[in-house]
Simulated scan of single mutants.
Amino acid sequence: MSLPTDRLTHPAVRALVTALNANDEQAFFAALTPDATMSDDGSDRDLRQWTDREVFGSRGHLAVRSQSDDGLSLVADYRNDTWGEMRTRWEFTVTDGKVSRFETGQA
Rank of each mutant, 00 (worst) to 15 (best):
residue 1 M to L: 09
residue 1 M to Q: 11
residue 2 S to M: 12
residue 5 T to W: 05
residue 8 L to P: 06
residue 9 T to P: 05
residue 10 H to A: 07
residue 13 V to D: 01
residue 13 V to P: 04
residue 14 R to P: 03
residue 16 L to Q: 15
residue 20 L to W: 09
residue 20 L to K: 12
residue 21 N to I: 14
residue 22 A to L: 13
residue 22 A to S: 12
residue 23 N to P: 10
residue 23 N to G: 15
residue 25 E to S: 09
residue 27 A to S: 14
residue 28 F to K: 01
residue 28 F to L: 02
residue 28 F to C: 04
residue 28 F to S: 03
residue 29 F to H: 04
residue 30 A to E: 12
residue 31 A to N: 03
residue 33 T to G: 06
residue 33 T to H: 15
residue 34 P to W: 08
residue 36 A to V: 04
residue 37 T to A: 00
residue 38 M to P: 09
residue 38 M to W: 06
residue 39 S to Y: 14
residue 40 D to L: 11
residue 40 D to T: 03
residue 41 D to W: 14
residue 42 G to F: 01
residue 42 G to R: 05
residue 42 G to C: 03
residue 43 S to D: 15
residue 44 D to F: 01
residue 48 R to F: 13
residue 49 Q to K: 13
residue 51 T to V: 13
residue 52 D to T: 15
residue 52 D to C: 14
residue 53 R to K: 13
residue 53 R to W: 06
residue 54 E to L: 11
residue 54 E to A: 15
residue 55 V to H: 12
residue 55 V to W: 08
residue 56 F to G: 07
residue 56 F to K: 05
residue 56 F to W: 06
residue 57 G to C: 02
residue 57 G to P: 02
residue 58 S to E: 07
residue 59 R to G: 11
residue 61 H to C: 08
residue 62 L to M: 13
residue 63 A to M: 11
residue 63 A to P: 07
residue 64 V to G: 07
residue 64 V to H: 11
residue 64 V to E: 10
residue 65 R to S: 10
residue 66 S to L: 09
residue 67 Q to D: 09
residue 67 Q to W: 09
residue 67 Q to M: 08
residue 68 S to A: 06
residue 69 D to N: 14
residue 70 D to A: 15
residue 70 D to C: 09
residue 71 G to I: 03
residue 72 L to E: 10
residue 73 S to Y: 12
residue 73 S to A: 15
residue 74 L to R: 01
residue 76 A to F: 08
residue 77 D to N: 13
residue 77 D to F: 13
residue 78 Y to R: 06
residue 78 Y to K: 07
residue 79 R to W: 00
residue 79 R to T: 02
residue 80 N to E: 03
residue 81 D to E: 07
residue 81 D to F: 03
residue 81 D to V: 02
residue 82 T to R: 05
residue 82 T to F: 01
residue 82 T to W: 02
residue 82 T to G: 01
residue 84 G to V: 02
residue 84 G to T: 00
residue 85 E to M: 12
residue 87 R to Q: 03
residue 88 T to D: 09
residue 88 T to N: 11
residue 88 T to H: 07
residue 90 W to G: 12
residue 91 E to G: 07
residue 92 F to K: 03
residue 93 T to D: 15
residue 93 T to M: 06
residue 93 T to Y: 06
residue 94 V to P: 03
residue 95 T to S: 01
residue 96 D to M: 00
residue 98 K to Q: 10
residue 98 K to F: 02
residue 99 V to K: 00
residue 101 R to K: 12
residue 102 F to Y: 14
residue 102 F to V: 04
residue 103 E to R: 14
residue 103 E to P: 06
residue 106 Q to E: 12
residue 106 Q to M: 11
